[in-house]
Design a protein around this nucleic acid. Sequence first.
DNA 1: ACCTGAACACCGTTCAAGT
DNA 2: ACCTGAACACCGTTCAAGT
Lengths: 218, 218
Amino acid sequence: MARLATVALEARKQPRQRRAQATVDAIMEATIQVLLEGGLQRLTTTRVAERAGVSVGTMYQYFPQKQALLFALLRRYMEKTAAAIAASCERSRGATIAVIAETLVGDFLDAKTTDMNVAQALHAVGMELATGNLLDEFGRANQAAIRGLLESAEDAVFDDPGAVAFALRATLSGTARAATRPDAKRYDTRALRHELQIMAAAYLKARARPRDAEAARR
Amino acid sequence: MARLATVALEARKQPRQRRAQATVDAIMEATIQVLLEGGLQRLTTTRVAERAGVSVGTMYQYFPQKQALLFALLRRYMEKTAAAIAASCERSRGATIAVIAETLVGDFLDAKTTDMNVAQALHAVGMELATGNLLDEFGRANQAAIRGLLESAEDAVFDDPGAVAFALRATLSGTARAATRPDAKRYDTRALRHELQIMAAAYLKARARPRDAEAARR
DNA sequence: ACCTGAACACCGTTCAAGT
DNA sequence: ACCTGAACACCGTTCAAGT
């Protein structure tokens, strides 16, 4: 099992004076700039401090390690999207499930897509683009397999099997990632599996025409 | 935009003799061991080479940078899961969509869950667990918001709103991650949004009882 | 063809000294 | 209370020399 040293990622010290707050702001802004400019590989403590116009020592007073910089950025991004999603839920409260489904999906994707530059840079943390290319490569392979499967269905025919396979694959692999998170509880994983099966079945049914109808038309 | 230096991640040199192949195998095995033992933070080229019983120079002959080690591991993992998924699709070929949905979801999750130790370690690349904790924290908040929304639906009542909210949230956030990948094409994103809305609507309908029936029973 | 390991440039982190 | 920057330990990567 991957054991990890327990590390403090939160700020070591809260800024108490105005100039200290300005320092923290400058560091965070510098982190974004350096990240967007050169990716994670070029994000060094020296570079961020230099861009922020402070010494490394000062930076370490507020961000006890390099990771804390990224952590703070991620926290800010997630606070923002969570607020947007909560607001969306508030808006469609009491609507029909059809409206709820449409609004929720739309607003959720919108929220996560805003500030996409930063989000992408954060997601890319670690293996950078290379990992993504690999994921895409196999994503396409899996999608092709699923598409072939859909086209073979005994009792249904799909008008756009490519789109359905695409959505199904994205949902599954995205969810699988969540399910394999280290702290995903066994219960959650099993429940999720059951719910996903219901979801996939309902989706396919909604997207398919019965094969009989097709045969009858010819 | 995050610009990245183009780097060769594939092996620099193919092993031609038997002892060279043994060297490559030893390095890959050592990488897994070091990764599972101490996480990404302790995965240094020196440590892997030492564990593999070769010099760093030898390692750099086959893996031109540190990332290439992880890349090779990830590739092996994905080849394995892709093969499992293809086999699953082959098995349920020609079945009904109900069977297809159930089999596909089940086998997909199984494939991605096998070798979970390595998968987790690979997923953890970069921000390690801290990121995950943050994701979970806001995941729970979003889930609670969605659950409240579902319970407020005008035309439906859910027997297990928590489970439905959990599945919906996992699907959405997992998919959003895929949609915000740098190379996700605009077309794909828009199509995915539409498909997800159909999926969510179909799922909610499958999971809900009409409110009238509930009112009538009382 | 394959391997070695000292050497180099650079990075994360600390801490005594300053205002 | 806040900031500085030289100093330290260590890491990724290279390359001349070996078998």
